[in-house]
């Protein structure tokens, strides 16, 4: 799934950096200038909700847009992620167009917050 997302984004001239798990994401987020963080709500160890909360509370990265991806079945988890401050949600499976559209939506949403 990560490879899929990366492939789509790179093909559309986004600069992409991947994290294998939540901890790697925690390590990288404060050191990077990011536009969007795309996280599966069910990431190992540090889930998407916790990651969102972390992003929102960080001094240098509170404004970064967070797009949560998940299966429709995990609606409950998605709601919590949105409550924690995620900007949007994309249900799996999705097409490249859907992903790009979702990214645009969360970016503009987060941009207004700035």
């Amino acid at each position: 799934m990560r490879a899929y997302v990366s492939a789509i984004l790179e093909a559309n001239d986004f600069e992409v950096d991947e994290a294998e798990n939540g901890f790697e994401a925690l390590r990288k987020i404060p050191r990077m200038q990011l536009d969007v963080i795309i996280a599966d709500v069910n990431m190992p160890d540090v889930n998407g909700i916790e990651l969102t909360r972390f992003v929102r509370r960080g001094p240098g990265h509170a404004d970064v847009a967070v797009l949560i991806i998940s299966t429709d079945a995990a609606r409950h988890d998605v709601d919590r992620a949105l409550a924690a401050g995620a900007n949007g949600f994309l249900a799996k499976p999705f097409t490249a167009e859907e992903l790009l559209a979702a990214i645009e939506t969360v970016r503009s949403g987060a941009g207004q917050a700035q």
């Binding site: 294998e20 798990n21 939540g22 901890f23 790697e24 925690l26 390590r27 404060p30 050191r31 160890d45 540090v46 889930n47 916790e50 990651l51 909360r53 972390f54 992003v55 509370r57 960080g58 001094p59």
Partner: peptide, 30 residues
């Protein structure tokens, strides 16, 4: 240490498993 977290956590993870089940890890930006 933020730079070492994903490796640093490995040892602790293993230790914690000896005692039971890790339910989740809650990061804090504070």
């Amino acid at each position: 240490d933020l730079l070492a977290i994903d490796v640093g956590i490995e040892g602790l993870k293993a230790r914690l498993k000896e005692f039971g089940e890790v339910i989740t890890y809650l990061p804090s930006a504070d």
